[in-house]
Amino acid sequence: MSRLSIQLPGLDLKNPIMPASGCFGFGKEFGNLYDLSKLGAIMIKATTVETRLGNPTPRVAETAAGMLNAIGLQNPGLEKVMNSELPYLERFDVPIIANVAGTTTEDYVEVSEKISTAPNVKALELNISCPNVKHGGITFGTDPVIARELVEAVKKVSKVPVYVKLSPNVTDIVEIAKAVEAGGADGITMINTLVGMRLDERTGKPVIANGTGGLSGPAVKPVAIRMVYEVYKAVNIPIIGMGGVTNAQDVIDFMSAGASAVAVGTANFVDPFVCPNIIEELPAKLEKLGVKRINEIIGRSHL
């Protein structure tokens, strides 16, 4: 047992650090920069049944200590992801968490059933929270009854554990967390982006072509920490926390609030080596805290 390792349903993590979905593509670009086997896991870009071309540009806008995005679930579709993207990642010793998205329950079921058979996909992450798809995604994530039913349907077909990615764009995130747990979810990942808008200084119109976009980056960290803290108290399944992580201290914060592992999103754009850098920094942080193994700090805020 190494100092940083973490065991989660389906996931044997060397360390608790993984790139967040949509911020790492399908790994290839970063695979040219460093050895992806260093990572705890990889959350790949959302996959849908058919090819999605996504939203018009501009799709991103910078904001104070953060950014808005409205990519719109662009991906090559299930077949291409399984035939060309996932096999590339097999050369690395790293578990893949497949982010699954769709517009109907049938979409989620179809992608989940097939993608969960890929040899390196060790868990699914149901994206019921993407703020950038009109109808579809968002309703699943904001209605506890629908969310629960979706999880039940996917659980029936998935060959690997199912994590559910929660949307912060709800009045009561604990209610949704409990609902997906009741539906049989093996874990929770949180948070997705917060719906926001930035206006052009000259025209007064939204900068992002889609109008709204999802806010991510350091600016959202306090919201994410609060939500992980609340959900940890209410459920018995593990949480993979994310939202604004840029360094080892942020990882400690998320795990203290109750996360068992931590995903890094936007920070990959600022520093493409951020994940391996954090992994390297962690042991020294644990030393400072007088902690032997990293799992000892999970949920320490609540003690």
């Binding site: 949509g22 911020c23 790492f24 593509g25 290839k28 670009e29 970063f30 920069l33 870009k45 071309l53 996504g54 540009t57 501009p58 799709r59 991103v60 806008a61 950014m67 995005n69 990519i71 662009q74 936007t266 990959n268 754009f269 493409p272």
Partner: peptide
């Protein structure tokens, strides 16, 4: 030119039809 996130092809920000 297009607005960019990652700059290396991973985030799908800078797409042209």
């Amino acid at each position: 030119e297009e607005r960019m996130g990652c700059g290396i092809g991973a985030c799908f920000a800078c797409i042209c039809k």
